[in-house]
């Protein structure tokens, strides 16, 4: 009955079903297309990432590396600069230490030489200075007499003093006495010279007059050469030892004994 009464209803339902099916098919078709489009897009993006991504990252890393390298170089430059400054300070410190050592030696040499009127004590001080500050183990003190002739030298060795028959006519001694300038063997000469040979001659001068000389014969075992400090000490000894000896001799002879009241405070 129903089939006969509603043949159109079935047909319309079929039609409706077909419509729905058709829409479903269209929707599915659309989805497939969209899916295809998205997959294509994904592929495109993947390709783009593969093509651009690593190089961009690499570029970033390169830039970062470059900055780090620059910083590293700056730090290295700064370290180099600080090291150089440190080296300069160390060198300057060493120079100041050497100057201080020199000044200390010169001060003590002067102070000690003028601390007594006793000639023997002065010679002992000269010996101490030559031994302890210079490293000269054996030396002779040669003084000129009133005629300008060299008297027999007084040899000092390890605290003992004795008159010896040393050659006062050695050319180096004569030359030093005439010129008033010291002669010091350099390192090469020292290595060639024998134990008893003259190593240095220092003129003893007062008021530009050479009154004698200090002649160094033997140095301590490890003393291989004379230094700048030794030369300064020789220069100082040349003047101050001579003056100390002269003062002591004058004092001993009574000429140099002074009285403040008579010598300084009274009117002429």
């Amino acid at each position: 009955m129903t089939e006969n009464n509603d043949p159109g209803g079935l047909s319309s339902r079929a039609e409706e079903f077909l419509q729905v099916f058709k829409k479903g098919a269209e929707f599915t078709q659309g989805l497939l297309k969209e899916n295809e489009r998205l997959r294509y897009r994904v592929l495109e993006l993947e390709q783009q990432l593969r093509a651009e991504g690593p190089s961009a990252e690499l570029q970033l890393l390169k830039e970062k590396l470059c900055r780090v390298e620059t910083e590293k170089q700056e730090i290295l430059d700064r370290i180099g600069s600080v090291e150089q400054e440190s080296l300069d300070f160390a060198n300057r410190y060493a120079e100041i230490e050497a100057e201080n050592n020199l000044l200390a030696n010169l001060y003590i040499t002067t102070y000690q030489l003028h601390s007594t009127f006793d000639v023997i004590e002065i010679i002992r001080i000269i010996e101490e200075i030559l031994l302890n500050l210079v490293g000269a183990e054996q030396f002779a003190l040669m003084l000129r007499d009133d005629d300008g002739q060299m008297v027999q030298p007084l040899l000092s060795e390890s605290g003992d003093f004795r008159i010896v028959n040393a050659d006062v006519n050695d050319q180096r001694i004569i030359s030093v006495l005439s010129r008033g300038q010291h002669w010091i063997a350099n390192a090469d000469e020292l290595s060639r010279l024998g134990e008893g040979d003259i190593k240095a001659v220092i003129p003893l001068q007062v008021d530009n007059e050479v009154i004698g000389a200090l002649v160094i014969y033997r140095l301590l075992a490890q003393k291989k050469c004379f230094t700048d400090i030794d030369e300064e000490i020789f220069n100082l000894l040349g003047g101050h030892a001579a003056m100390a000896i002269c003062t002591a001799v004058l004092h001993r002879e009574g000429v140099g004994t002074f009285s403040f009241t008579q010598g300084f405070l009274t009117q002429p």
Partner: peptide, 10 residues
């Protein structure tokens, strides 16, 4: 030695 003593003290 007064000289050396002075140097050491210095």
């Amino acid at each position: 030695s007064p000289t050396m003593r002075q140097l050491i003290v210095f």
